[in-house]
């Protein structure tokens, strides 16, 4: 009985954490502030929308972390791809082309990371620390060190009703409506896809195999180099999509956006139960982790706590999550 309770606590840790945090804010917010109820559909619509970028990033990061890697260049990739998208929209390319270009841009950066890591056998942490700088610099270069705005005065002059569907995908402009923005649905669909990919396909099994023990994977004849490049490339596609939602949220391409977002994304995956040693992690956990981060942010704002307080709390949550991971591993040994 006691053992099974412990098992539930460890297995369902992220989910229980999420419930506790929501319960806390639902009680505390109306008590302490004049904001009224925290536990409302409207609030959750905002929270879901705010989760989108981190969640899409966390999907890619889950693959990478399960395979025993890490990618610090996500934030920069999001900024660069959003600049690429904005530039294309500025030049009157259709939204579809912009989306494809952003996904392709993310994929290219991922393939570069993967090739450096797997092909040249370098440590992922260092390689992606390098590309973090390179990609951020490239984004600023492409944006000429300022935000990339659209429609340009020229576009406005040609067509007063200039509009791109990209701007609609993350909108919460209609706060009383029931509909969730497109971005949230896209995340749900992608989460299902990535979960299937990881759990039900040979590729997914191989991702776990590489992360659990790369030497065994090689010994068993898995094409480890190719697999790793593919993993970073696929994750890059998702990071490009995260860039799309970044662009959609701001309605402009900002080369300085998403600084430090890689840490939120990695934290979401770790809080969700993945192990930085590789071989362990779930999509569901990562999504709960991403949601937990967003609830914490919204909740602390609703409590009117200062920003720095929010950072401290999120830091604490990460440490607690890693401690849980440690307990879990202790059980296995």
């Amino acid at each position: 009985m006691k053992a099974s309770l412990k098992r539930i606590l460890l297995k369902g840790g992220p989910f229980i954490g999420l419930i506790l945090v929501i319960a806390f804010f639902s009680i505390a917010v109306p008590l302490v502030t004049h904001h009224g109820n925290f536990f409302t559909y409207h609030n959750f619509k905002i929270i879901f929308t705010q989760t989108v970028i981190v969640a899409v990033g966390a999907l890619g990061m889950t693959m990478i972390i399960v395979s025993g890697g890490i990618d610090l260049s996500v934030g920069s990739t999001i900024a660069l791809t959003s600049v690429i998208g904005a530039r294309l929209l500025q030049h009157d390319w259709p939204a579809g082309v912009a989306v494809l270009a952003m996904v392709a841009g993310g994929a290219l950066i991922g393939l570069l990371n993967g090739t450096l890591i797997a092909g040249l056998r370098m440590v992922p942490f260092i390689v992606t620390l390098g590309t973090l700088g390179i990609v951020r610099g490239t984004a600023k270069w492409l944006a000429e060190n300022q935000t990339v705005n659209y429609p340009t005065p020229l576009q406005k002059a040609a067509n007063a009703d200039w509009h791109t569907p990209v701007d609609d995908w993350m909108t919460t402009a209609d706060p009383d409506g029931m509909a969730l923005p497109v971005g949230v649905w896209v995340v749900l669909a992608l989460a299902l896809l990535v979960a299937l990919l990881l759990c039900r396909t040979v590729f997914g099994r191989h991702v776990f195999a590489i992360g659990s023990n790369e030497q065994t994977a090689r010994l068993c004849g898995l094409p480890t180099v190719r697999l790793k490049i593919l993993i970073y490339g696929l994750a890059g596609c998702l990071f490009g999509l995260a860039g799309l939602f970044q662009l959609s949220r701001l309605s402009l391409g900002d080369p300085t956006a998403a600084v430090g977002l890689e840490l939120d994304i990695i934290a979401a995956v770790i809080v969700g139960g993945a192990s930085l040693n590789g071989g362990v992690g779930t999509v569901l956990g990562s999504m709960i982790g991403a949601l937990l981060m967003a609830v914490l942010r919204t909740g602390t704002q609703a409590m009117e706590w200062p920003n720095y307080f929010q950072e401290i709390i999120i830091g604490l949550v990460i440490i607690v999550a890693v401690y849980f991971d440690r307990l879990r591993q202790g059980r296995e040994n």
């Binding site: 195999a209 659990s212 023990n213 068993c220 898995l222 071989g279 296995e332």
Partner: peptide, 19 residues
Amino acid sequence: EEGLMLSQSIADNLTLTKQ
């Protein structure tokens, strides 16, 4: 260190060469 993926299941370890 080389032969097995300790965190993975018996089934996955046993069938890794031809999944």
